[in-house]
Simulated assay, not measured.
Amino acid sequence: MDDRALAGDLATAAGELLLQIRVGGLAGKQLGKEGDMRSNEFLMAQLANRRPDDAVLSEESADDKSRLHADRVWIVDPVDGTREYGVPGRTDWAVHVALWSAEGGGTLIAGAVALPALGITYVDDDSVIEPTDGLASSPRGERPRVVVSGSRPPAFSQPVADAIGGTVLQMGSAGAKAMAVVRGEADAYVHAGGQYEWDSAAPVAVAEAKGLWCGRIDGSPLVYNRDDTYLPDLVICRPELRDKIIAVTSAG
């Protein structure tokens, strides 16, 4: 199985496991903790078995710095949006599985984002994704939507929306917000409240494959598999909106 197919299969399977755990009687923080642990155990075991020579960076495992010298590093978030996962009925949580390669100076070469509560997994290919349940699709004649964190919206949320003549919409999970832009249900996702590499690696791999622009709020590129995994800000948007958005987000 190639890397892209493996990323998709693992994200999907971890999502199915999380759905099973979710109906087991736990709730809130206890459910989130159990989901994080068991999804991480599943992903780490699968990667150890199926890609034993690759390194892994996971939110829920100790950071093995040998990855800094590895040719290939899987970057995973077993539950992106743990808080939303613990709330009955919430669908805006995800599983992220991405693969970074040292070739060419370092780049993401595969990625998958599963939205288990919606029964969807997106991978980094050029297939056409049809809008699904979640945010209602808006005709292009309507005002653009800028999705931001529901718990940590950036100060420039409204100025960004104003710059593109749009509106602000809050959601959970970086993966859910990024995939809303992929589906065309939103036009941009902006974030500056703090993230780590596992929060954005898989969503960025998918979004870039769909033709979206992805980068830092100052317009610089996103760099993965660094010693310091803190990657605090992110913009994912339709390419034609990039300059207007960066003009706002880079102004400080």
Score class of each variant (00 low, 15 high):
L17S: 05
G119K: 05
D36T: 07
G24S: 14
Q20Y: 00
V79L: 15
M44S: 15
G15A: 11
S101I: 04
R22C: 01
R90F: 13
I21G: 08
M44T: 04
V95D: 07
V95L: 02
A14M: 13
L18R: 14
I120N: 06
G24E: 11
L31W: 13
P88M: 07
H69E: 15
I75S: 02
L31Y: 12
A94C: 14
A98L: 02
P52F: 05
W74A: 06
I75R: 05
L118T: 09
K33D: 15
G15Q: 11
A70T: 01
T82D: 10
T91C: 06
A62L: 11
R51I: 10
W100D: 01
D126E: 13
S101H: 09
R72N: 07
D125T: 06
I109F: 06
G32K: 03
P116A: 09
E84H: 11
E84W: 05
W93G: 08
L47G: 14
E84M: 03
W100K: 01
S61N: 01
V95I: 12
E59P: 09
G106I: 04
D71W: 01
I120A: 10
A102W: 09
A45F: 01
T91R: 13
A114P: 07
S61M: 09
T121A: 11
V95F: 08
G15S: 14
D71F: 06
E103P: 00
R51D: 10
T91D: 14
G89W: 05
L68S: 13
V113Y: 04
E103W: 06
I109K: 03
V95C: 04
A102Y: 08
L19F: 02
